[in-house]
Protein backbone atom coordinates (compact mmCIF):
# COMPACT_ATOMS: atom_id res chain seq x y z
CA UNK A 1 0.00 0.00 0.00
CA UNK A 2 1.29 3.43 -0.92
CA UNK A 3 -1.59 5.89 -0.99
CA UNK A 4 0.58 8.91 -1.77
CA UNK A 5 0.91 10.36 -5.25
CA UNK A 6 3.48 8.78 -7.55
CA UNK A 7 6.26 10.95 -8.96
CA UNK A 8 4.51 10.99 -12.32
CA UNK A 9 1.29 12.12 -10.68
CA UNK A 10 3.07 14.87 -8.78
CA UNK A 11 4.75 16.05 -11.97
CA UNK A 12 1.44 16.01 -13.83
CA UNK A 13 -0.19 18.13 -11.18
CA UNK A 14 2.70 20.58 -10.99
CA UNK A 15 2.82 20.88 -14.75
CA UNK A 16 -0.87 21.62 -15.06
CA UNK A 17 -0.66 24.10 -12.21
CA UNK A 18 2.07 25.97 -14.06
CA UNK A 19 0.04 25.92 -17.28
CA UNK A 20 -3.02 27.36 -15.56
CA UNK A 21 -1.04 29.99 -13.68
CA UNK A 22 0.37 31.14 -17.01
CA UNK A 23 -2.84 31.01 -19.01
CA UNK A 24 -5.46 31.73 -16.39
CA UNK A 25 -3.99 34.06 -13.81
CA UNK A 26 -5.90 36.50 -11.68
CA UNK A 27 -6.36 39.06 -14.50
CA UNK A 28 -7.98 36.47 -16.71
CA UNK A 29 -10.15 35.28 -13.84
CA UNK A 30 -11.40 38.80 -13.22
CA UNK A 31 -11.90 39.37 -16.96
CA UNK A 32 -14.04 36.23 -17.03
CA UNK A 33 -16.11 37.60 -14.16
CA UNK A 34 -16.88 40.81 -16.06
CA UNK A 35 -16.96 39.38 -19.58
CA UNK A 36 -18.06 36.11 -21.13
CA UNK A 37 -16.95 33.43 -18.68
CA UNK A 38 -15.94 30.89 -21.30
CA UNK A 39 -12.86 31.58 -23.43
CA UNK A 40 -12.80 29.32 -26.50
CA UNK A 41 -9.10 29.94 -27.06
CA UNK A 42 -8.26 28.73 -23.57
CA UNK A 43 -10.70 25.84 -24.01
CA UNK A 44 -8.82 24.72 -27.13
CA UNK A 45 -5.53 24.95 -25.24
CA UNK A 46 -6.96 22.81 -22.45
CA UNK A 47 -7.92 20.29 -25.10
CA UNK A 48 -4.45 20.38 -26.62
CA UNK A 49 -2.93 19.91 -23.16
CA UNK A 50 -4.95 16.69 -22.91
CA UNK A 51 -7.36 17.84 -20.24
CA UNK A 52 -10.39 16.41 -22.03
CA UNK A 53 -8.81 13.41 -23.78
CA UNK A 54 -6.76 12.48 -20.71
CA UNK A 55 -8.37 9.08 -20.34
CA UNK A 56 -8.61 8.14 -24.02
CA UNK A 57 -6.06 5.60 -25.17
CA UNK A 58 -3.03 7.08 -26.90
CA UNK A 59 -3.99 5.13 -30.02
CA UNK A 60 -7.26 7.08 -30.04
CA UNK A 61 -5.54 10.44 -29.75
CA UNK A 62 -5.75 10.58 -25.96
CA UNK A 63 -3.19 10.70 -23.17
CA UNK A 64 -3.88 7.20 -21.87
CA UNK A 65 -4.10 8.12 -18.20
CA UNK A 66 -6.75 7.18 -15.65
CA UNK A 67 -9.34 8.55 -13.27
CA UNK A 68 -6.72 9.28 -10.58
CA UNK A 69 -4.87 11.62 -12.91
CA UNK A 70 -8.14 13.23 -14.01
CA UNK A 71 -8.96 13.90 -10.35
CA UNK A 72 -5.61 15.62 -9.86
CA UNK A 73 -6.12 17.90 -12.87
CA UNK A 74 -9.66 18.75 -11.79
CA UNK A 75 -8.36 19.59 -8.33
CA UNK A 76 -5.99 22.12 -9.89
CA UNK A 77 -8.76 23.52 -12.11
CA UNK A 78 -11.02 23.90 -9.08
CA UNK A 79 -8.37 25.81 -7.18
CA UNK A 80 -7.95 28.22 -10.10
CA UNK A 81 -11.75 28.68 -10.48
CA UNK A 82 -11.39 27.76 -14.14
CA UNK A 83 -14.82 28.37 -15.72
CA UNK A 84 -16.67 26.19 -18.20
CA UNK A 85 -18.36 22.80 -18.34
CA UNK A 86 -15.12 20.95 -17.56
CA UNK A 87 -16.69 17.80 -16.18
CA UNK A 88 -19.21 17.31 -18.99
CA UNK A 89 -16.69 17.97 -21.75
CA UNK A 90 -14.15 15.61 -20.19
CA UNK A 91 -16.78 12.89 -19.91
CA UNK A 92 -18.13 13.52 -23.41
CA UNK A 93 -14.66 12.97 -24.84
CA UNK A 94 -14.01 9.99 -22.56
CA UNK A 95 -17.26 8.28 -23.57
CA UNK A 96 -17.19 9.28 -27.24
CA UNK A 97 -20.21 11.57 -27.13
CA UNK A 98 -18.75 14.61 -28.87
CA UNK A 99 -19.68 16.39 -32.06
CA UNK A 100 -17.57 15.08 -34.97
CA UNK A 101 -15.33 17.14 -37.20
CA UNK A 102 -18.30 17.89 -39.43
CA UNK A 103 -20.30 19.05 -36.48
CA UNK A 104 -22.53 15.99 -36.58
CA UNK A 105 -23.44 14.65 -33.20
CA UNK A 106 -23.57 10.98 -33.97
CA UNK A 107 -20.41 8.97 -34.32
CA UNK A 108 -17.93 11.60 -33.28
CA UNK A 109 -14.67 10.42 -34.79
CA UNK A 110 -12.87 8.33 -32.21
CA UNK A 111 -9.48 8.53 -33.91
CA UNK A 112 -9.19 12.29 -33.75
CA UNK A 113 -11.39 13.81 -31.11
CA UNK A 114 -11.93 17.48 -31.86
CA UNK A 115 -9.92 19.64 -29.53
CA UNK A 116 -12.37 22.40 -28.98
CA UNK A 117 -15.88 21.12 -28.35
CA UNK A 118 -17.78 22.67 -25.50
CA UNK A 119 -20.09 20.05 -24.07
CA UNK A 120 -22.33 20.66 -21.11
CA UNK A 121 -24.72 18.23 -19.46
CA UNK A 122 -28.22 17.86 -18.20
CA UNK A 123 -27.74 17.41 -14.47
CA UNK A 124 -29.91 15.62 -11.92
CA UNK A 125 -30.84 19.00 -10.44
CA UNK A 126 -32.49 19.91 -13.76
CA UNK A 127 -29.95 22.69 -14.29
CA UNK A 128 -27.58 23.04 -17.22
CA UNK A 129 -24.43 25.17 -16.98
CA UNK A 130 -22.93 27.18 -19.85
CA UNK A 131 -25.70 26.12 -22.22
CA UNK A 132 -25.33 29.17 -24.43
CA UNK A 133 -21.66 28.41 -25.09
CA UNK A 134 -22.18 24.71 -25.62
CA UNK A 135 -21.92 22.74 -28.85
CA UNK A 136 -23.72 19.79 -27.33
CA UNK A 137 -25.44 18.61 -24.17
CA UNK A 138 -24.86 15.24 -22.53
CA UNK A 139 -28.06 13.39 -21.74
CA UNK A 140 -29.03 9.82 -20.95
CA UNK A 141 -28.77 7.44 -23.86
CA UNK A 142 -31.77 5.54 -25.10
CA UNK A 143 -29.52 2.75 -26.32
CA UNK A 144 -26.87 0.83 -24.45
CA UNK A 145 -24.34 3.61 -23.98
CA UNK A 146 -24.40 5.41 -20.65
CA UNK A 147 -24.52 8.78 -22.35
CA UNK A 148 -25.46 10.59 -25.55
CA UNK A 149 -25.26 14.14 -26.81
CA UNK A 150 -27.98 16.38 -28.15
CA UNK A 151 -27.91 19.85 -29.62
CA UNK A 152 -28.55 22.66 -27.16
CA UNK A 153 -31.51 23.84 -29.22
CA UNK A 154 -33.20 20.48 -28.69
CA UNK A 155 -33.47 21.11 -24.96
CA UNK A 156 -36.38 23.22 -23.85
CA UNK A 157 -34.79 25.48 -21.30
CA UNK A 158 -35.00 28.87 -19.65
CA UNK A 159 -32.07 30.88 -18.33
CA UNK A 160 -31.97 31.98 -14.73
CA UNK A 161 -29.81 34.68 -13.19
CA UNK A 162 -27.03 32.54 -11.76
CA UNK A 163 -25.72 33.33 -8.30
CA UNK A 164 -22.22 32.58 -9.62
CA UNK A 165 -20.95 35.11 -12.18
CA UNK A 166 -18.67 32.42 -13.64
CA UNK A 167 -21.39 29.82 -14.16
CA UNK A 168 -24.35 30.79 -16.37
CA UNK A 169 -27.25 28.46 -15.63
CA UNK A 170 -30.39 27.36 -17.45
CA UNK A 171 -33.27 25.35 -16.09
CA UNK A 172 -34.77 22.49 -18.06
CA UNK A 173 -38.44 23.10 -18.89
CA UNK A 174 -39.85 19.61 -18.88
CA UNK A 175 -42.57 18.68 -21.29
CA UNK A 176 -42.57 22.05 -22.96
CA UNK A 177 -43.85 22.31 -26.51
CA UNK A 178 -45.00 18.72 -26.47
CA UNK A 179 -41.46 17.38 -26.41
CA UNK A 180 -40.39 14.78 -23.91
CA UNK A 181 -37.43 15.83 -21.79
CA UNK A 182 -34.39 13.65 -22.31
CA UNK A 183 -33.13 11.47 -19.48
CA UNK A 184 -30.05 11.99 -17.35
CA UNK A 185 -26.62 10.51 -17.97
CA UNK A 186 -26.41 7.28 -16.01
CA UNK A 187 -24.05 4.70 -14.57
CA UNK A 188 -20.34 5.38 -14.60
CA UNK A 189 -20.78 8.78 -16.29
CA UNK A 190 -22.89 10.05 -13.46
CA UNK A 191 -20.61 8.64 -10.76
CA UNK A 192 -17.49 9.98 -12.43
CA UNK A 193 -19.18 13.36 -12.85
CA UNK A 194 -19.82 13.43 -9.10
CA UNK A 195 -16.22 12.45 -8.36
CA UNK A 196 -14.69 15.01 -10.73
CA UNK A 197 -16.98 17.69 -9.28
CA UNK A 198 -15.74 16.65 -5.82
CA UNK A 199 -12.18 17.08 -7.10
CA UNK A 200 -13.01 20.62 -8.23
CA UNK A 201 -14.43 21.30 -4.77
CA UNK A 202 -11.30 19.90 -3.14
CA UNK A 203 -9.14 22.27 -5.18
CA UNK A 204 -11.26 25.21 -4.12
CA UNK A 205 -11.25 24.11 -0.47
CA UNK A 206 -7.45 23.89 -0.44
CA UNK A 207 -7.09 27.22 -2.24
CA UNK A 208 -9.26 29.10 0.24
CA UNK A 209 -7.08 27.74 3.07
CA UNK A 210 -3.94 29.18 1.51
CA UNK A 211 -5.71 32.45 0.64
CA UNK A 212 -6.95 32.85 4.21
CA UNK A 213 -3.55 32.00 5.68
CA UNK A 214 -1.77 34.47 3.41
CA UNK A 215 -4.18 37.22 4.37
CA UNK A 216 -3.91 36.36 8.08
CA UNK A 217 -0.13 36.71 7.87
CA UNK A 218 -0.27 40.06 6.07
CA UNK A 219 -3.19 41.87 7.62
CA UNK A 220 -2.28 43.65 10.85
CA UNK A 221 -4.59 44.86 13.61
CA UNK A 222 -3.79 45.72 17.22
CA UNK A 223 -0.17 45.93 16.10
CA UNK A 224 0.28 42.37 14.91
CA UNK A 225 -0.77 40.03 12.11
CA UNK A 226 -4.32 38.82 12.74
CA UNK A 227 -3.01 35.26 12.23
CA UNK A 228 -1.27 35.56 15.61
CA UNK A 229 -4.69 35.56 17.31
CA UNK A 230 -6.06 32.19 18.27
CA UNK A 231 -9.53 33.06 17.03
CA UNK A 232 -8.11 33.36 13.51
CA UNK A 233 -5.66 30.49 13.90
CA UNK A 234 -8.41 28.12 14.88
CA UNK A 235 -10.56 29.12 11.92
CA UNK A 236 -7.63 28.39 9.61
CA UNK A 237 -6.82 25.08 11.34
CA UNK A 238 -10.42 23.94 10.96
CA UNK A 239 -10.23 24.81 7.27
CA UNK A 240 -7.13 22.68 6.76
CA UNK A 241 -8.68 19.73 8.59
CA UNK A 242 -11.74 19.90 6.31
CA UNK A 243 -9.63 20.08 3.18
CA UNK A 244 -7.35 17.21 4.20
CA UNK A 245 -10.20 14.91 5.16
CA UNK A 246 -11.87 15.67 1.82
CA UNK A 247 -8.58 15.00 0.04
CA UNK A 248 -8.29 11.54 1.59
CA UNK A 249 -11.89 10.76 0.58
CA UNK A 250 -11.59 12.09 -2.98
CA UNK A 251 -8.28 10.37 -3.71
CA UNK A 252 -9.51 7.07 -2.26
CA UNK A 253 -12.66 7.25 -4.39
CA UNK A 254 -10.47 7.82 -7.45
CA UNK A 255 -8.67 4.58 -6.60
CA UNK A 256 -11.66 2.38 -5.74
CA UNK A 257 -14.30 4.04 -8.02
CA UNK A 258 -16.87 2.54 -5.64
CA UNK A 259 -20.26 4.31 -5.48
CA UNK A 260 -20.15 4.68 -1.69
CA UNK A 261 -16.66 6.09 -1.74
CA UNK A 262 -17.68 8.57 -4.42
CA UNK A 263 -20.77 9.59 -2.44
CA UNK A 264 -18.66 10.16 0.66
CA UNK A 265 -16.07 12.09 -1.33
CA UNK A 266 -18.70 14.38 -2.83
CA UNK A 267 -20.32 14.96 0.54
CA UNK A 268 -17.07 15.85 2.30
CA UNK A 269 -15.65 17.87 -0.58
CA UNK A 270 -18.87 19.90 -0.83
CA UNK A 271 -18.73 20.54 2.89
CA UNK A 272 -15.06 21.52 2.73
CA UNK A 273 -15.45 23.85 -0.26
CA UNK A 274 -18.50 25.68 1.05
CA UNK A 275 -17.39 25.99 4.67
CA UNK A 276 -13.81 26.86 3.81
CA UNK A 277 -14.98 29.63 1.50
CA UNK A 278 -17.23 30.88 4.30
CA UNK A 279 -14.37 30.88 6.79
CA UNK A 280 -12.01 32.45 4.27
CA UNK A 281 -14.55 35.23 3.85
CA UNK A 282 -14.69 35.68 7.63
CA UNK A 283 -10.89 35.89 7.90
CA UNK A 284 -10.94 38.63 5.25
CA UNK A 285 -13.34 40.72 7.31
CA UNK A 286 -15.00 43.55 5.38
CA UNK A 287 -12.83 42.90 2.34
CA UNK A 288 -14.32 39.41 2.17
CA UNK A 289 -17.73 40.94 1.53
CA UNK A 290 -16.57 42.89 -1.53
CA UNK A 291 -16.94 42.00 -5.21
CA UNK A 292 -13.26 42.80 -5.65
CA UNK A 293 -11.94 40.02 -3.41
CA UNK A 294 -12.04 36.57 -5.02
CA UNK A 295 -13.49 34.87 -1.95
CA UNK A 296 -17.10 35.20 -3.08
CA UNK A 297 -16.22 33.50 -6.37
CA UNK A 298 -15.06 30.42 -4.47
CA UNK A 299 -18.14 30.43 -2.26
CA UNK A 300 -20.60 30.86 -5.11
CA UNK A 301 -18.94 28.22 -7.26
CA UNK A 302 -18.89 25.87 -4.29
CA UNK A 303 -22.63 26.43 -3.91
CA UNK A 304 -23.17 25.62 -7.59
CA UNK A 305 -21.05 22.46 -7.50
CA UNK A 306 -22.73 21.30 -4.31
CA UNK A 307 -25.97 21.00 -6.28
CA UNK A 308 -24.30 19.26 -9.21
CA UNK A 309 -24.45 15.51 -9.88
CA UNK A 310 -24.99 14.30 -6.33
CA UNK A 311 -26.76 16.27 -3.64
CA UNK A 312 -25.96 15.87 0.03
CA UNK A 313 -29.25 14.07 0.64
CA UNK A 314 -28.66 11.60 -2.17
CA UNK A 315 -25.17 10.87 -0.90
CA UNK A 316 -26.32 10.47 2.69
CA UNK A 317 -29.15 8.14 1.68
CA UNK A 318 -26.80 5.99 -0.36
CA UNK A 319 -24.31 5.81 2.50
CA UNK A 320 -27.02 5.01 5.04
CA UNK A 321 -28.27 2.14 2.87
CA UNK A 322 -24.68 0.93 2.73
CA UNK A 323 -24.60 0.68 6.51
CA UNK A 324 -27.52 -1.72 6.39
CA UNK A 325 -26.15 -3.68 3.43
CA UNK A 326 -22.82 -4.24 5.17
CA UNK A 327 -24.67 -6.02 7.94
CA UNK A 328 -26.62 -8.32 5.67
CA UNK A 329 -25.08 -11.77 5.68
Amino acid sequence: MDFLLTEDQLALRTGFQALLEGRFGRDRLRAAVEGPPLDRGLWRELGEAGFFALRLAEADGGVGLGLQEAVLLFEVAGGALLPGPLVATHLAVTYGAVPGADGALEGGSAEAPPMGPVVTALEPSGLIEHLESADAVLVGSEGGAPVAAVRPAELPSAPLRSVDPLTPLCRLRSGAEGREAPGLPQGPVRREAALLTAALQLGSAARTVSTAVRYAREREQFGRPIGAFQAIKHLCARMLVRAELARAAVYAAAVTEAPHDIAGAKLLADEAAVNNARDCLQVHGGMGFTWEADVHLHLKRAWVRKEQWQSAHEAEDLLADGLIDELSP
Binding site: R247, A248, Y251, L268, A315, L318, L319, A320, G322, L323
Partner: peptide, 19 residues
Protein backbone atom coordinates in the same frame (compact mmCIF):
# COMPACT_ATOMS: atom_id res chain seq x y z
CA UNK B 1 -28.88 10.95 6.90
CA UNK B 2 -27.10 11.68 10.14
CA UNK B 3 -25.78 8.12 10.13
CA UNK B 4 -25.01 8.31 6.40
CA UNK B 5 -22.91 11.41 6.99
CA UNK B 6 -21.04 9.68 9.81
CA UNK B 7 -20.38 6.75 7.47
CA UNK B 8 -18.66 9.18 5.07
CA UNK B 9 -16.76 10.72 7.95
CA UNK B 10 -15.35 7.48 9.32
CA UNK B 11 -14.63 6.07 5.86
CA UNK B 12 -12.58 9.20 5.15
CA UNK B 13 -10.82 8.98 8.51
CA UNK B 14 -9.80 5.46 7.59
CA UNK B 15 -8.40 6.75 4.29
CA UNK B 16 -6.61 9.55 6.10
CA UNK B 17 -5.03 6.92 8.34
CA UNK B 18 -3.84 5.04 5.28
CA UNK B 19 -2.49 8.32 3.90
Amino acid sequence: RRLGRLAAEFAALWRLTQW
